[in-house]
Amino acid sequence: MLWNLPGIHVPADPLYPGAPPFLTNTFLLTIVGSILIIALMLFVGRNPKQVPGKLQNLVEWVFEQFLNLCEQVAGPERGRKFFPWVLTIFLFVLFANWWEVIPGIETIGFKSTDTALSPACAHVGSQGFLLFGQYSNCITPFFRPPSTDLNFTIALSIVTVVMTQVYGFVVLGFRLQIGRYLVFNQGIMGFIVGLFELLLEAMRLISLSFRLFGNLFAGDVLLVVISFISIGVGAIPFYFLEIFVGFIQAFVFAFLTLLFFTLGTTPHGHEAHEEEHLAETAHAEHERVASALAGAKLEEAHAQ
């Protein structure tokens, strides 16, 4: 056989044998991705031109689209407050997702003597720089896309859920924010709705983290398996698919973050009813004035 199917396993690998638990190959690309984003923004923002070049134009367009989205969903005031957070998450997740289509990621690494990958791996030390045949999968890669590590996605989701609470406390205040979960003055239904709100926070955390991880890990496995069965050539269309999926999932994560922030800072129950009541009153008043004006005009016409 020309090569073996590469080892597919969920946990990230240590960066080097004996590395501390946090120092994994996904962690390395997380740091590299962050540095790239910071460098890109510094490069574009350092010397902005009145007539923007291609890169500045692209960055400005992305900023504009997300600012519009934030203002449409959360309103102008809150939208501008959430915008930096939402766009940062989008760019961070986008960079984390798109690593997987770069050649060399997950295929270059140090030789692994783990016999779980292949029995021949025990003797991989005697092989040269390139590994073929039964030794071909005896590799622990230097780099692995961060989004294929559950630690990355769960950490990002925890940050999002915690920030939802922070924004809730800042915008609504302590009493309203706590009153969202502990409802004692609206009977048993109010209490159950409070419990539902608590359960929703857990559901948000799980849905955000597992969606991103599931999509990206599945994409990663897809690329590996298709490359294995088609000598690499057959995987080319799937690389385009993964670029698309990476973008979509980054947008979904950022948009749901925005939606959760909006939900977390929107008063509901008593306050929402009050707002609706005010709107209804204003509408009724508007109609009353309009009909009075119409009546007055009619009378004027009769008089003439």
């Binding site: 504009e64 689209q65 600012l67 519009n68 989205l69 203002e71 449409q72």
Partner: peptide
């Protein structure tokens, strides 16, 4: 919708 002319 907005002053930047982007719209949705």
């Amino acid at each position: 919708q907005n002053s930047r002319g982007g719209g949705s």
